[in-house]
Design a protein around this nucleic acid. Structure first.
Length: 434
RNA sequence: GGAGAGGUGGCUGAGUGGUUGAAAGCACCGGUCUUGAAAACCGGAGUAUCGCAAGGUACCGCAGGUUCGAAUCCUGUCCUCUCCGCCA
């Protein structure tokens, strides 16, 4: 969440962020509550000071005087209790309103109502041409016996699937490729330098297998509670993660790192669980949208000065990997109305899916400044000894969706699917799925 | 799941109701000494919050409670460790 001090000092900016992100948070009310809260707190502090003084005197007093003195403090105790009771509801409403305030956005982020107003930055790669009608991935999946949604529906319900055979191997090949790329300092350096970001570290990402369950309190602190979108474990204060981000983002909670240790870069692989409430009937075929999928996720913690450039590097790495897979894509600047609450800046990659004849979102990159780290108390200490909140970036390495793009772009007239060259070595040199 | 022990400042570790926001040591910062450094000696130093400031308040895992007064007593909770059970 945002710091109330920041909100006080940037009222207009915060108000326009609320408006442009289509949120409904009454900032004036928040500020009014803030003032009342502080006013009561001041009175409470004064009363407590009085009580502390009185107690100290009682301690020094003789046994005889003590009883009378204790009696005289009774009124003060009442007053403190009354003030505490006055403060509680104000503080509670204040906290709940403050929690709802979204992050402000990059001035470069276009103002827009919803996803229709996202802006395509560039299109990269040549769309494949077919001398036959390209199939959708679910058709290919069924014909090649790679995806079984029918049995999954019987066993687990709608929006589940079995991945089978070579598609399973392809998935692991893709994630291995992501990890091998992100632990390779040479590649990071190459991408970094090509973007003119030589001042950034070329430190490799550390692979992680994070927990897939997260405490209520932590999920709330990183602002990843989306009402009915997450699965909650019955009788436990635990939730299934909807992304490895949920347990990577809090990895440094309650810590103060040395500036010299930064950046901290992680690539975490996990299954993601999503209820997909409110999407009934949308994308029902195949594996585009489901309750469960596997994803590797980049998470990076940096200084405040380098957070924005870190995102550029991360997007560069996403593009590098997508290009290596030979997938045509477009880079999309997300507009305010489509951006996440915690996001200061958000860039998506949409891969070309010939079967659908459309670009579909496969990657996202969120730059959140200190919006998340504020809630989990993740700091770094500068060389001068100053304590500052870490800035966080979070982005997709690969999810299940690029598999769709591979299947559809690499399909052959005979119904088989070629395997992208960079993935072949992870599949024992296999070149085609048939 | 059962039994027991414990959670104190950057670290180690005292502290069982009254100048304790917290001893001591280490680490850290400044100074003296030194050509420089080390050692020694002197001094400083927690975090958050309110306040122009002086200063106040809160914080000894977390949340409540008892008390004029709680790191210290009580309850709940989270976490760590040991033993037993179960187990990939």
């Amino acid at each position: 969440m945002l710091d109330i001090k920041f909100i006080r000092e940037n009222v207009d900016r915060v108000k326009s962020a609320v408006k442009n992100k289509n949120k409904d948070v009454d900032i004036d009310k928040l500020l009014e509550l803030d003032e009342r809260r502080r006013e009561i707190m001041t009175r409470l502090d004064e009363a407590r000071a009085e009580q502390n003084t009185a107690s100290a005197e009682i301690a020094k007093a003789s046994e005889v005087d003590r009883e009378a003195m204790i009696k005289s403090v009774a009124e003060l105790k009442e007053r403190i209790k009354a003030l505490e009771e006055e403060l509680a509801p104000v503080a509670e409403e204040f906290a709940s309103l403050l929690y709802q305030v979204p992050n402000v956005t990059d001035p470069a982020m276009p103002v827009g109502k919803d996803e229709d107003e996202n802006v395509v930055i560039k299109q990269v790669g040549e769309k494949p041409t077919f001398n036959f009608k390209p199939k959708e991935h679910w058709e290919l999946g069924k014909e090649l016996n790679l995806i079984d949604t029918e049995k999954a529906a019987e066993v687990s319900g709608a929006r589940f699937w079995y991945l089978k055979g070579d598609l399973v191997r392809l998935q692991f090949a893709m994630h291995m490729f992501a990890i091998d790329t992100l632990i390779n300092e040479e590649i990071i350096k190459e991408v970094r330098d090509s973007l003119g970001l030589e001042h950034l570290s070329s430190k490799p990402f550390v692979p992680m297998l994070p927990p897939v369950m997260v405490r209520d309190s932590v999920q709330k602190a990183i602002h990843r509670v989306f009402g009915d979108q997450t699965y909650k474990i019955d009788d436990e204060e635990l939730n299934l993660v909807a992304s490895a981000e949920h347990t990577l983002a809090p990895y440094h909670m309650n810590e103060t790192l040395d500036e010299a240790e930064l950046p901290k870069r992680y690539v975490g692989y996990s299954t993601a669980f999503r209820r997909e409430a409110g999407t009934y009937g949308k994308d029902m075929k195949g594996i585009l949208r489901g309750h469960q999928f596997d994803k590797s996720e980049m998470e990076s913690f940096t200084t405040q000065d380098t957070g924005a450039d870190e995102q550029k590097l991360i997007v560069g790495l996403q593009e590098y990997m997508v290009k290596k897979l030979g997938l045509p894509y477009q880079l999309v600047q997300i507009c305010t109305g489509d951006a996440g609450g915690p996001d200061y800046q958000q860039i998506d990659i949409e891969c070309w899916m010939p079967g659908q004849d459309a670009y579909r979102e496969t990657h996202t990159s969120d730059y959140m400044t200190d919006y998340q780290t504020h809630g989990i108390n993740a700091f770094y200490k500068t060389a001068e000894g100053e304590r500052k909140l870490l800035y966080a970036n979070d982005a997709t390495a690969f999810s299940g969706r690029p598999l769709i793009a591979i299947m559809e772009n690499y399909q052959q007239e005979d119904g088989s699917i070629k395997i992208p060259e960079v993935l072949q070595k992870y599949m024992g040199g296999q070149e085609v799925i048939k």
